[in-house]
Design a protein around this nucleic acid. Sequence first.
RNA 1: GCCAGAGUAGCUCAGGGGUAGAGCAGAGGACUCAUAAGCCUUUGGUCGCAGGUUCAAUUCCUGCCUCUGGCACCA
Length: 526
Amino acid sequence: MTKSFYLTTAIDYVNGQPHLGHAYEKVVSDVIARARRSLGQEVFFLTGLDEHGQKVQQAAQSEGKSPQAYCDALALDWRTFATELQLSNQDFVRTSDPRHKSVVQAILTKLNNEGHFYRSKYRGFYSTRQETFLTEKDRRPDGSFDSIYGEVTELVEENYYFKLRDHQQWLIDYIEHNPDFIAPSYRRNEVLGFLKNNDLEDLCITRPAARLSWGIPLPFDPEYVTYVWFDALANYISVPAAYGDPALRAALPDLKLNEPTGDQRLALWPADLHVIGKDILKFHAVYWPIMLKAIGLSLPKQILVHGWWQKDGEKISKSTGNIIDPLAVIKDWGLDAFRYYVTRELAIGPDGNWTDAGFASRYTAELANGIGNLLNRSLAMLRSYRNKTVPARHDELAHEASKTVEAVRKQLLEPDLQGALQTLFSLITHANQYIDQTAPFKLAKDPAQAQRLDEILYNLMEVCRILAVLIWPFLPSTAEKIFAQLGLLKSPSDFNLAVWGGLPSGHVTNDPAPLFPRRDTLPSPA
RNA sequence: GCCAGAGUAGCUCAGGGGUAGAGCAGAGGACUCAUAAGCCUUUGGUCGCAGGUUCAAUUCCUGCCUCUGGCACCA
């Protein structure tokens, strides 16, 4: 059993409908997953939902539903969302899954037995709305609390805590010795700055069941449910454990979950990549590694931190109506146009700025006039001049194409998705220049130039074929369409197909049809 | 306030001790296979401000100004 490339997204809190930020993270992750598969790796891509907590409990109550029924309904929307984005995830985890609960309880039992937890009283001001205790730092000069906290009450509570204090130094060392552990590097610097300038405080990992019943009960104290950390973060290992991952089974020998047999067993841990938003960096780069070390597991290879989207230079906000509805955009422009814009517009890391004009501009200039038109004009010429039949192989653009292929391969592995798209589009530009320089439409009028015309047409068709393979991780449907128009029966999902000379002489293509029809309207307001 | 980082063409950004670069936008042109697409040419800049080091600074140093991110929740 060889270990798969294991890739996760953050699991989203099931409190409302998916928006652009969720869609972005999922698409980026999916492109990486598809790229790795295309390059020949076995990939396990996991996404899912975080369902426990007070907000869900309250929302369910106000709708007169059980929390589980409430989550079931929303989970349907989120699964549909994943489908609409054409995510290629292998599994979809929900923290209310029985398999997840079993793993969480096994972890808690083990860490409790090994003395990682202690019980302690805490008196403080509690904000129900924010589900958090407030400190003196949260107070305003007049002693009151900001209205974002809602009603604040003072209460005394006994809870369980996870000892973090002893873990600070090894974690600093680990991050310093593993420069790729947190990417981009400025996020790594932030974490190191935090770890070096603050003393870690122990982590409160429970809530009294009396106050919060919608959670996973502590196996050693039914008066409590576990809270956030050992619930949500644990999804990354609960699913591998359910698939019988050897590393996890070894770390959690008392796990009460049937082990799958034969082909269903998977080796996934350690994760190769956690894709997360910058808001949850600390949890993933500080708490999570410490939890894993305590459990006795190795750390994920990389935490890749993406930025947030703005719209028209302003913060996206439901209350001001400054929002993007990804599903509306997809309905209007097509999924691949959406996937293209969010991966092309910004690198993974910095914040991005969504503008409808920018979206329309990339659609027209790059998708319609770029890749769409290149395929269209190339196929149209082959149809007019050679009755759709591919001439003998000729290698005039082979060098340029293979240079592009190798550069894209590197960028996909990094992963530099924006860079890969830029590289790939340089081949489109090159092919368009080639058409102008060689003017096949002039040669077609002179029978004496038939040989030269054959050569040019072959080069164009072959570039289009290779482009489809390169673009497949980003725009799977478009890549399939290109192959279909080229009359190819295979799927463009294998990077090995991006080798020059794949089109056999005599092969007959199909008719051209615009991949991205030009349009003159802006996307409808979300 | 503290810690990073950034200020370069209308916009987004790359670069880097010695005549300033790309893409998009703008202007002009030749062509016609194509989704009136594509191609070629081209106008734009005291490289944030002030000092310093140097034969030479946009680049290195110092100070200042402005902005962004992090330090508290949120994809």
